[in-house]
Protein backbone atom coordinates (compact mmCIF):
# COMPACT_ATOMS: atom_id res chain seq x y z
CA UNK A 1 0.00 0.00 0.00
CA UNK A 2 1.40 3.41 -0.85
CA UNK A 3 2.46 5.89 1.78
CA UNK A 4 1.53 9.56 2.14
CA UNK A 5 -1.96 9.96 0.73
CA UNK A 6 -3.30 13.29 -0.38
CA UNK A 7 -6.63 14.55 0.94
CA UNK A 8 -8.39 14.02 -2.39
CA UNK A 9 -7.57 10.30 -2.20
CA UNK A 10 -9.63 9.76 0.97
CA UNK A 11 -12.29 7.11 0.32
CA UNK A 12 -15.97 7.97 0.78
CA UNK A 13 -19.27 6.40 -0.21
CA UNK A 14 -21.53 8.23 -2.66
CA UNK A 15 -23.57 10.07 -0.03
CA UNK A 16 -20.74 12.53 0.43
CA UNK A 17 -19.88 15.59 -1.62
CA UNK A 18 -16.86 17.79 -1.17
CA UNK A 19 -16.55 21.52 -1.27
CA UNK A 20 -13.30 22.95 -2.54
CA UNK A 21 -10.79 24.23 -0.07
CA UNK A 22 -10.43 28.02 0.22
CA UNK A 23 -6.66 27.62 0.59
CA UNK A 24 -5.72 31.24 -0.12
CA UNK A 25 -8.20 32.49 2.42
CA UNK A 26 -7.09 30.06 5.11
CA UNK A 27 -3.43 30.92 4.58
CA UNK A 28 -3.81 34.70 4.35
CA UNK A 29 -2.29 36.96 6.98
CA UNK A 30 -4.94 39.56 6.34
CA UNK A 31 -8.57 38.99 5.30
CA UNK A 32 -11.56 41.21 4.68
CA UNK A 33 -15.04 40.77 6.09
CA UNK A 34 -16.20 40.24 2.53
CA UNK A 35 -13.77 37.37 2.09
CA UNK A 36 -14.98 35.77 5.31
CA UNK A 37 -18.52 36.10 4.00
CA UNK A 38 -17.67 34.45 0.69
CA UNK A 39 -15.75 31.64 2.35
CA UNK A 40 -18.46 30.87 4.87
CA UNK A 41 -20.95 30.82 2.02
CA UNK A 42 -18.85 28.25 0.18
CA UNK A 43 -18.20 26.17 3.25
CA UNK A 44 -21.77 26.09 4.53
CA UNK A 45 -23.22 25.35 1.10
CA UNK A 46 -26.57 24.38 2.58
CA UNK A 47 -29.36 26.76 1.48
CA UNK A 48 -31.16 26.70 4.84
CA UNK A 49 -27.98 27.43 6.69
CA UNK A 50 -27.06 30.25 4.32
CA UNK A 51 -30.43 31.86 4.83
CA UNK A 52 -30.03 31.56 8.56
CA UNK A 53 -26.65 33.29 8.41
CA UNK A 54 -28.10 36.10 6.33
CA UNK A 55 -30.98 36.53 8.79
CA UNK A 56 -28.40 36.95 11.54
CA UNK A 57 -26.71 39.76 9.66
CA UNK A 58 -24.18 37.90 7.55
CA UNK A 59 -20.65 36.79 8.34
CA UNK A 60 -19.86 40.10 10.00
CA UNK A 61 -22.21 39.07 12.78
CA UNK A 62 -20.07 36.00 13.38
CA UNK A 63 -17.17 38.32 14.16
CA UNK A 64 -18.84 40.90 16.32
CA UNK A 65 -22.28 39.89 17.36
CA UNK A 66 -21.82 36.89 19.66
CA UNK A 67 -23.93 34.20 18.04
CA UNK A 68 -23.65 32.12 21.19
CA UNK A 69 -26.37 29.71 20.38
CA UNK A 70 -29.45 29.71 22.58
CA UNK A 71 -31.14 26.28 22.30
CA UNK A 72 -34.56 27.94 22.18
CA UNK A 73 -33.73 30.02 19.14
CA UNK A 74 -35.31 29.21 15.81
CA UNK A 75 -31.92 28.49 14.20
CA UNK A 76 -30.73 26.20 17.03
CA UNK A 77 -31.54 22.90 15.37
CA UNK A 78 -30.15 23.79 11.98
CA UNK A 79 -26.99 25.19 13.50
CA UNK A 80 -26.49 22.03 15.57
CA UNK A 81 -27.03 19.88 12.50
CA UNK A 82 -24.42 21.85 10.58
CA UNK A 83 -21.94 21.78 13.40
CA UNK A 84 -22.39 18.11 14.22
CA UNK A 85 -22.09 17.10 10.61
CA UNK A 86 -18.88 19.10 10.37
CA UNK A 87 -17.49 17.40 13.47
CA UNK A 88 -18.61 14.00 12.22
CA UNK A 89 -16.56 14.57 9.08
CA UNK A 90 -13.70 15.87 11.21
CA UNK A 91 -13.74 12.69 13.32
CA UNK A 92 -13.61 10.61 10.18
CA UNK A 93 -10.64 12.56 8.90
CA UNK A 94 -9.01 12.21 12.33
CA UNK A 95 -9.50 8.42 12.15
CA UNK A 96 -7.90 8.47 8.73
CA UNK A 97 -5.07 10.80 9.72
CA UNK A 98 -4.12 8.80 12.83
CA UNK A 99 -4.32 5.51 10.93
CA UNK A 100 -2.14 6.89 8.16
CA UNK A 101 0.43 8.01 10.75
CA UNK A 102 0.61 4.39 11.93
CA UNK A 103 1.20 3.27 8.34
CA UNK A 104 3.32 6.11 6.95
CA UNK A 105 5.87 6.16 9.76
CA UNK A 106 5.97 2.47 10.71
CA UNK A 107 9.62 2.08 9.72
CA UNK A 108 10.80 5.59 10.60
CA UNK A 109 14.04 5.17 12.57
CA UNK A 110 13.38 8.36 14.47
CA UNK A 111 10.17 7.10 16.00
CA UNK A 112 10.05 4.50 18.77
CA UNK A 113 7.36 1.84 19.01
CA UNK A 114 5.36 3.91 21.49
CA UNK A 115 4.59 6.35 18.68
CA UNK A 116 2.89 3.65 16.64
CA UNK A 117 1.04 2.40 19.72
CA UNK A 118 -0.26 5.93 20.38
CA UNK A 119 -1.35 6.39 16.76
CA UNK A 120 -3.18 3.05 16.69
CA UNK A 121 -4.86 3.91 19.95
CA UNK A 122 -5.99 7.20 18.47
CA UNK A 123 -7.29 5.45 15.36
CA UNK A 124 -9.56 3.33 17.54
CA UNK A 125 -10.68 6.35 19.59
CA UNK A 126 -11.54 8.34 16.45
CA UNK A 127 -13.48 5.38 15.10
CA UNK A 128 -15.52 5.45 18.30
CA UNK A 129 -16.05 9.20 17.85
CA UNK A 130 -17.36 8.56 14.34
CA UNK A 131 -19.85 6.11 15.86
CA UNK A 132 -20.85 8.56 18.59
CA UNK A 133 -21.31 11.44 16.17
CA UNK A 134 -23.30 9.37 13.72
CA UNK A 135 -25.65 8.60 16.62
CA UNK A 136 -25.76 12.31 17.52
CA UNK A 137 -26.55 13.20 13.90
CA UNK A 138 -29.51 10.88 14.15
CA UNK A 139 -30.39 12.51 17.47
CA UNK A 140 -30.70 15.94 15.80
CA UNK A 141 -32.45 14.51 12.70
CA UNK A 142 -29.50 14.98 10.39
CA UNK A 143 -28.67 12.59 7.58
CA UNK A 144 -25.12 11.52 6.79
CA UNK A 145 -24.08 13.52 3.73
CA UNK A 146 -26.67 16.25 4.27
CA UNK A 147 -23.90 18.85 4.28
CA UNK A 148 -20.76 19.11 2.18
CA UNK A 149 -17.48 17.86 3.50
CA UNK A 150 -14.40 20.00 3.38
CA UNK A 151 -11.05 18.35 3.78
CA UNK A 152 -9.10 21.13 5.39
CA UNK A 153 -8.37 19.23 8.60
CA UNK A 154 -6.67 16.37 6.76
CA UNK A 155 -5.15 18.71 4.20
CA UNK A 156 -3.46 20.94 6.76
CA UNK A 157 -2.80 18.32 9.39
CA UNK A 158 -1.16 15.65 7.28
CA UNK A 159 2.40 16.66 6.57
CA UNK A 160 4.99 14.10 5.45
CA UNK A 161 7.27 15.17 8.30
CA UNK A 162 6.27 13.28 11.48
CA UNK A 163 7.00 16.25 13.74
CA UNK A 164 4.76 18.45 11.59
CA UNK A 165 2.15 15.67 11.37
CA UNK A 166 1.76 15.35 15.13
CA UNK A 167 1.75 19.12 15.48
CA UNK A 168 -0.87 19.56 12.77
CA UNK A 169 -3.12 16.65 13.70
CA UNK A 170 -2.63 16.25 17.43
CA UNK A 171 -1.95 19.78 18.54
CA UNK A 172 -3.83 22.00 16.12
CA UNK A 173 -6.69 19.78 14.91
CA UNK A 174 -7.33 18.14 18.26
CA UNK A 175 -6.93 21.48 20.01
CA UNK A 176 -9.62 22.91 17.75
CA UNK A 177 -11.76 19.91 18.64
CA UNK A 178 -11.42 20.76 22.34
CA UNK A 179 -12.69 24.29 21.65
CA UNK A 180 -15.66 23.04 19.65
CA UNK A 181 -16.57 20.32 22.14
CA UNK A 182 -16.61 22.66 25.09
CA UNK A 183 -19.09 24.76 23.15
CA UNK A 184 -21.23 21.72 22.34
CA UNK A 185 -21.25 20.48 25.94
CA UNK A 186 -22.44 23.89 27.11
CA UNK A 187 -25.09 23.90 24.46
CA UNK A 188 -26.25 20.42 25.50
CA UNK A 189 -26.53 21.46 29.13
CA UNK A 190 -28.38 24.64 28.22
CA UNK A 191 -30.82 22.55 26.21
CA UNK A 192 -31.24 19.98 29.03
CA UNK A 193 -30.07 17.45 26.47
CA UNK A 194 -28.14 14.81 28.36
CA UNK A 195 -27.47 12.81 25.19
CA UNK A 196 -25.47 15.64 23.67
CA UNK A 197 -23.79 16.85 26.87
CA UNK A 198 -22.72 13.45 28.14
CA UNK A 199 -21.53 11.88 24.90
CA UNK A 200 -19.51 14.91 23.86
CA UNK A 201 -18.06 15.09 27.38
CA UNK A 202 -16.58 11.60 26.88
CA UNK A 203 -15.34 12.45 23.40
CA UNK A 204 -13.58 15.55 24.66
CA UNK A 205 -11.89 13.52 27.42
CA UNK A 206 -10.42 11.29 24.67
CA UNK A 207 -9.26 14.33 22.72
CA UNK A 208 -7.26 15.60 25.68
CA UNK A 209 -5.21 12.40 25.46
CA UNK A 210 -4.69 12.94 21.74
CA UNK A 211 -3.48 16.49 22.27
CA UNK A 212 -1.06 15.10 24.87
CA UNK A 213 0.29 12.66 22.26
CA UNK A 214 1.00 15.69 20.08
CA UNK A 215 2.75 17.60 22.85
CA UNK A 216 4.92 14.62 23.78
CA UNK A 217 5.95 13.61 20.25
CA UNK A 218 6.49 17.11 18.88
CA UNK A 219 8.79 17.75 21.83
CA UNK A 220 10.61 14.41 21.52
CA UNK A 221 11.22 14.90 17.79
CA UNK A 222 12.66 18.40 18.13
CA UNK A 223 14.63 17.92 21.38
CA UNK A 224 18.05 19.54 21.08
CA UNK A 225 17.43 20.74 17.52
CA UNK A 226 16.48 24.45 17.64
CA UNK A 227 16.31 24.71 13.86
CA UNK A 228 13.76 21.96 13.54
CA UNK A 229 11.92 23.31 16.56
CA UNK A 230 11.57 26.65 14.76
CA UNK A 231 10.34 24.93 11.59
CA UNK A 232 7.65 23.18 13.63
CA UNK A 233 6.62 26.38 15.39
CA UNK A 234 6.22 28.07 12.00
CA UNK A 235 4.15 25.17 10.71
CA UNK A 236 2.02 25.28 13.83
CA UNK A 237 1.34 29.02 13.36
CA UNK A 238 0.31 28.39 9.78
CA UNK A 239 -2.12 25.62 10.76
CA UNK A 240 -3.49 27.47 13.77
CA UNK A 241 -4.17 30.44 11.50
CA UNK A 242 -5.99 28.22 9.01
CA UNK A 243 -7.99 26.64 11.83
CA UNK A 244 -9.02 30.05 13.15
CA UNK A 245 -11.35 30.16 10.11
CA UNK A 246 -10.41 33.70 9.28
CA UNK A 247 -10.18 34.82 12.90
CA UNK A 248 -13.53 33.55 14.11
CA UNK A 249 -11.90 31.71 16.96
CA UNK A 250 -10.70 33.59 20.00
CA UNK A 251 -11.52 34.72 23.53
CA UNK A 252 -12.13 32.03 26.09
CA UNK A 253 -14.98 30.48 27.99
CA UNK A 254 -13.08 30.56 31.20
CA UNK A 255 -12.54 34.29 30.79
CA UNK A 256 -16.30 34.58 30.56
CA UNK A 257 -16.20 35.53 26.88
CA UNK A 258 -19.62 35.41 25.36
CA UNK A 259 -18.92 37.42 22.26
CA UNK A 260 -16.59 35.13 20.32
CA UNK A 261 -17.89 32.79 17.67
CA UNK A 262 -15.67 30.00 18.92
CA UNK A 263 -13.93 30.68 22.24
CA UNK A 264 -10.81 28.76 23.24
CA UNK A 265 -11.30 25.92 25.76
CA UNK A 266 -8.57 27.20 28.04
CA UNK A 267 -8.96 24.68 30.89
CA UNK A 268 -9.25 21.65 28.60
CA UNK A 269 -6.13 22.78 26.78
CA UNK A 270 -4.25 23.20 30.05
CA UNK A 271 -5.09 19.64 31.11
CA UNK A 272 -3.71 18.56 27.73
CA UNK A 273 -0.40 20.28 28.45
CA UNK A 274 -0.74 23.73 26.83
CA UNK A 275 0.91 26.60 28.74
CA UNK A 276 -0.88 29.95 29.15
CA UNK A 277 1.56 31.43 26.67
CA UNK A 278 0.77 28.74 24.08
CA UNK A 279 -2.95 29.24 24.53
CA UNK A 280 -2.57 32.98 23.99
CA UNK A 281 -0.66 32.20 20.83
CA UNK A 282 -3.51 30.02 19.53
CA UNK A 283 -6.05 32.70 20.45
CA UNK A 284 -4.08 35.28 18.51
CA UNK A 285 -3.29 33.04 15.54
CA UNK A 286 -6.01 34.41 13.26
CA UNK A 287 -5.38 36.80 10.41
CA UNK A 288 -5.87 40.54 10.68
CA UNK A 289 -9.45 41.37 9.71
CA UNK A 290 -10.03 44.55 7.71
CA UNK A 291 -13.35 45.91 6.54
Amino acid sequence: MKKFMTSDELARDDRFTRSSLPLDFLMAEEVTVEQIETTMTTLLSNPDMLKSMEDEGGAASLLSGGPRLNPEEERAKLTMKTQMHGIFMGEMQALEAAGRSAWDFQDNEELPWEFQLDMCRQTWDEGRHVEIYSALLDHVDCEIGEFNENLFLFEFGCSDDPAERVTGVNRCLEGLALDVFQQTIRFGKAADDETIAQSVDFVSADEVTHVKFGQVWAKALTEGDPERRQKIVNFQRKVDRAFSLGGLRGGSYDGGATEAFLPIAREFRKVAGFSDEEIDEVAGAGPKVTS
Binding site: M92, L95, G99, A102, W103, G127, I144
Partner: peptide, 20 residues
Protein backbone atom coordinates in the same frame (compact mmCIF):
# COMPACT_ATOMS: atom_id res chain seq x y z
CA UNK B 1 0.02 -0.46 10.69
CA UNK B 2 -1.86 -1.86 7.69
CA UNK B 3 -5.23 -1.73 9.46
CA UNK B 4 -4.53 1.90 10.34
CA UNK B 5 -3.45 2.75 6.81
CA UNK B 6 -6.45 1.05 5.22
CA UNK B 7 -9.06 3.10 7.09
CA UNK B 8 -8.58 6.07 4.79
CA UNK B 9 -8.77 3.88 1.68
CA UNK B 10 -12.16 2.22 2.30
CA UNK B 11 -15.29 4.05 1.11
CA UNK B 12 -17.56 1.74 3.16
CA UNK B 13 -17.96 3.46 6.51
CA UNK B 14 -18.63 0.26 8.45
CA UNK B 15 -15.41 -1.28 7.10
CA UNK B 16 -13.47 1.90 7.83
CA UNK B 17 -14.56 1.69 11.45
CA UNK B 18 -13.99 -2.05 11.73
CA UNK B 19 -10.33 -1.77 10.77
CA UNK B 20 -9.86 1.33 12.94
Amino acid sequence: AALGGWGATMPEMDCKNLVA
